[in-house]
Computed example of a mutant assay.
Amino acid sequence: MIESIDFTKSEQYTLSIRLSTDGFSFSIYDPFCDSKLFFKQYAVNTQRSMAANVKSFLAETEELKYKYKQTNILIHSSRYTPVPLEIFEDEQMESLFYQNLPKQNNEIVLCNILGKSNLVILFSIDKLTHQFLTDNFASTRFFSAVSPQIELLTAKSRLGNNSKLYANLHPHSIDLFCFDRGKLQLINSYPVTTTEDTCYYLLNVWKMLGYDQERDELHLTGDLSQQDSLMGELKKYIRKIFIINPQAELHSATDTPIEEVPFDIQSLLICE
């Protein structure tokens, strides 16, 4: 928990739930007082389905039983694909999605239209999970976890006259966002198990895009538990490496650190 929340006022708060195979988490945010931020994690049983884990999560978590002004659901998964906004049509969502990803049973395809980025992110969610969540919460919005990050980083990447690679590190994966002066060049997610894996994907993408070792920038966020070894290796090849400061990003009035809040949730709150 980051800051105490008065649950008698829950109907003025925003609830953001993050679903990932790494575990579930949620934040409760008071838009009228940005020092009020409640955050909690929930372990999942990897032997059970996503829907079964979500059902238990909803039943066992008291904070989710209140009414909220808005509920955001973030799906952290590699099953997403970007589509330029100018060619996007609603009726083609599934065909566009399955051109890039293998079909799976019992899932629905959703979309996020990103106005700042001129992009649409198509993503999927298990049908039963979707039903549990829509039945449980009113005013529910679904997001791919990469969507708010793209919107936030698009704006940040326009600062300066160089290219930028943003990396969000997770316990078993890494999300990469590459920009050239505000224009998204590449977005992808990769499975990783070691620091060596992380360095491999970062440096391979850096080289593939022809980024300059002296002038272009690498920004890191997320799970930085191996920060010293990671930075030590990356600094052999890239001069400008920065750690994203979540406290500064949220402009929060509280002195309580918020590093434990996933960057995709932070991005969504900033972009609201």
Rank of each mutant, 00 (worst) to 15 (best):
N161P: 00
R79S: 08
D197V: 05
S10F: 11
L37C: 06
L184T: 00
S117I: 01
W206I: 08
H219F: 11
I243E: 05
K67A: 10
T154A: 08
C271D: 13
V109M: 10
R18V: 00
S267N: 07
S16L: 08
L165C: 07
I244M: 13
Y237I: 00
T195E: 03
R215V: 15
S95V: 06
L184K: 02
F123T: 06
T81R: 03
Y29F: 15
Y80P: 03
L230I: 02
D223N: 15
Q47N: 14
Q149I: 04
C111I: 03
S16F: 01
I265D: 14
S25M: 07
L153K: 07
L152E: 00
S157W: 07
R215G: 02
E249D: 11
D30L: 03
I75C: 06
G210Y: 09
D22L: 08
N72L: 07
I174Q: 05
P148N: 01
H130W: 09
L269T: 03
L230N: 00
G210D: 07
A43V: 09
L74G: 02
P191H: 13
A145P: 01
Y98R: 08
D223I: 02
V205C: 05
Q226I: 04
E60C: 05
L96R: 14
D175L: 11
K40C: 09
N161V: 12
S163A: 14
I2V: 12
C271R: 15
K207L: 07
C199L: 06
K183N: 06
G210E: 06
V146E: 00
Q149R: 09
E94S: 12
Y98K: 05
R181E: 10
F143K: 01
Y68L: 02
K65H: 13
T134D: 11
N53M: 04
L224P: 00
K116L: 10
S56Q: 14
S95H: 10
I265L: 15
G222K: 06
T134M: 06
Y66F: 14
A43I: 09
D30Q: 04
D228H: 12
D34E: 11
D126P: 05
H219N: 07
V146T: 08
R141T: 10
I73V: 13
G115P: 01
Q227D: 04
L268Y: 05
W206R: 09
M231T: 09
M231K: 09
E196D: 13
T14I: 15
K235F: 03
K127S: 11
D255E: 10
V205P: 00
R215W: 07
I5Y: 03
K240H: 08
F38H: 14
F242M: 04
K65C: 00
S25N: 15
L224G: 05
G210C: 09
N45T: 04
F39H: 15
R79G: 04
L152F: 03
F137K: 10
Y200A: 01
D180W: 05
M1K: 14
Y68G: 09
L122R: 10
D212E: 08
Y13P: 03
R79K: 11
A52K: 11
L101Q: 11
K65L: 08
L96V: 01
S144Y: 05
K240R: 13
V205M: 05
P257T: 09
E11I: 02
P257F: 06
I270R: 15
N100C: 12
Q227K: 12
E91C: 03
K240Q: 12
C33N: 15
K36Y: 07
R18F: 10
